[in-house]
Amino acid sequence: MFDQFDYQVVIDSIPFLWEGMQLTFLLTFLAITGGLFLGVLLALARLSHIKVLSFVAGSYVNFFRSMPLILVIFWFYFLVPFILGRPVGGFYSVLVAFTLFEAAYYCEIMRAGIQSVRQGQLQAGQAIGLSYKQNMQYVVLPQAFRNMMPILLTQAVILFQDTSLVYVVGLHDFLVNAEIVATRENRLIEMFSTVAAVYFILCLSFSLSIRKLQRKFSV
């Protein structure tokens, strides 16, 4: 049965697949960066003593966590151009959607991370005269990141896989490009097993390097 397979088509399409993979990587990287930044701010707001801030952050998180990602992507695809009054293209709308969506998850992870830092550490920072911002920046957040590193990176792997949803707005990521080749050349099984293998190898090696990093980090 396997001798009917033609993997030449996979080799020939590598440049085209790589183009798609670049979009996947770029989107993953930007969404993680943006989502993490926004997520940290949300976590600080959510833990704030100012009730309005923590309420707004809490509502934000609950809202996005109750929405399917694909709906959020659709929503921003139509909403962002509507607000700006001009088309922004698929890439920017999904980037906004991913960033805002991931921020809700990163917020919860970072909130747990901040709470995992002992109260005494905060007091020690205060006692040497650090301001709230300095205390967060130099004392609390570095420890929170360290404590939450495995979960943050696991979330990054999930995001990497979720970026395949961009097909709904017509962006050409790795999966979409593979599908184009698959249907054009009628080599569905070869292409999709290649896609599966690539996702598997990338995610697995990433997870393994997380574990290695983890061992190095823990003093």
Binding site: A124, L130, Q143, V219
Partner: peptide, 20 residues
């Protein structure tokens, strides 16, 4: 308060050195 605290040193029961 931050200025004031910088003029008063404090030592805690559990040391509270910054582990990172």
């Amino acid at each position: 308060l931050t200025k004031l605290r910088s003029r008063i040193g404090m030592v805690f029961q559990n040391f509270e050195l910054f582990p990172h």
